[in-house]
Nucleic acid binder design. Structure first.
Lengths: 200, 200
DNA sequence: CTGGTTATCTGAATAGTGTTCAGATTATGG
DNA sequence: CCATAATCTGAACACTATTCAGATAACCAG
């Protein structure tokens, strides 16, 4: 284990909670959501093993908190990716729709261990927080509305748009990540999805 | 931790490797793929903590082995589920296709922790074993061929059949399991998939 | 039936883990 | 400036994976 103590001038750390989260994310990226060690975090942050328990009741809640944080990161990544294609034309709508899927997949491939943390049962969503309030879901919804409004997609498919698109992209990302499908399969999936949904 | 020793008459266990696997599956079902403990397995099986290392070099290879085993279980579950709908009619083809998805989802819901083990990065597939040799994949392929042959699906969607169907079902199962979509969304997904693929 | 070989399992040890808690330290507000 | 509250430490407990020398028993040749 690396014992890279971060320099600290005072007895109090200053911003320990955030430092713990950042260190945890870094370690999860390297070692996976399982294999995260509270003690390794404290060594990295330069603090005693018990200090973290002032901010997180246990390891699982730290992991869950990071999960929440990552869903926000993914959403802002998607937001940024579709800013390149503004406008109400059918062409722009189609590009935005496709880009949402691509951004989702790119995130999964670039950060496999964070993706596993988000969707691997380490931070299951409670019933309280509805998926409908999720920022990514709202963007997908709007992209589908735009597709229909611009005439790029027949309205008969609209009711199934969210669930089909999200499930497809999630499933393909998952399967490719774990080696059950080749990496180049993702563009094929998007082609197939658009063909099936009559997007043109 | 439960210390339920299995009775053993002799110094040698007799079938320790299989007993370890079965106990591991049982414990993973209860506690999840992370939280699996080698020591708890040995206590359950009634053997010393180091005995397991005669059959598995470490915990990770035991988990990977169990993953392989579970893919076989899932495939045989699917096989059994479509035996109810034999024949070459369009109706039978359609029922088989739908039943494959349903069986996959049922497995995920009935055994969430085993599903997480299979697709959560605990036993990533190596490049050697191609997905094309997977029994479930072969069944899906045949179901799609039957759909086209019986006239229940336009052939223009055929090239995307495997990846669309598998990704959809995998993604929806994953998302529902982790609380990102409601349980009743799965039948909607199948409706949408069949509508989009022109299955009728 | 005997004795040696080999597979199998034990016991103890090492090093690392999550978590708790009494107490030490320091920031902060009156 | 001092009391209070927030923050962090150190030591402890019970647990974990993994290694390895040695104990045990199955098996097989004579």
């Amino acid at each position: 284990m690396s014992v890279l103590k971060v320099s600290r001038d005072s007895y109090h750390h200053g911003n320990l909670q955030e430092a713990i989260i950042q260190s945890a994310i870094k370690l999860i990226r390297k070692n996976g959501p399982d294999h995260l060690s509270m003690r390794e975090i404290s060594y990295e942050v330069g603090v005693s093993p018990s200090a973290a328990y002032h901010y997180f009741p246990d390891k699982d809640s730290l992991v869950r908190g990071i999960g929440q944080h990552l869903f926000g990161e993914l959403a802002s990544m998607i937001t940024k990716s579709i800013e390149k294609f503004p406008g109400t034309s059918a062409r722009a709508s189609k590009l935005r729709f496709r880009e949402i899927g691509r951004a989702y997949f790119k995130w999964a491939v670039k950060e496999p261990n964070l993706f596993r943390l988000m969707f691997g049962g380490f931070c299951s969503s409670d019933e309280q927080t509805s998926y409908k309030e999720d920022a990514s879901y709202i963007m997908l919804k709007k992209a589908l509305d735009d597709l229909v409004a611009s005439g790029a997609m027949p309205s008969k498919f609209r009711p199934y748009g969210e669930i089909l698109a999200w499930s497809c992209v999630q499933g393909a990302s998952n399967l490719i990540l774990e080696g059950h499908l080749p990496k180049n399969a993702f563009e094929d999936l998007l082609d197939g999805l658009e063909l099936a949904l009559g997007v043109k």
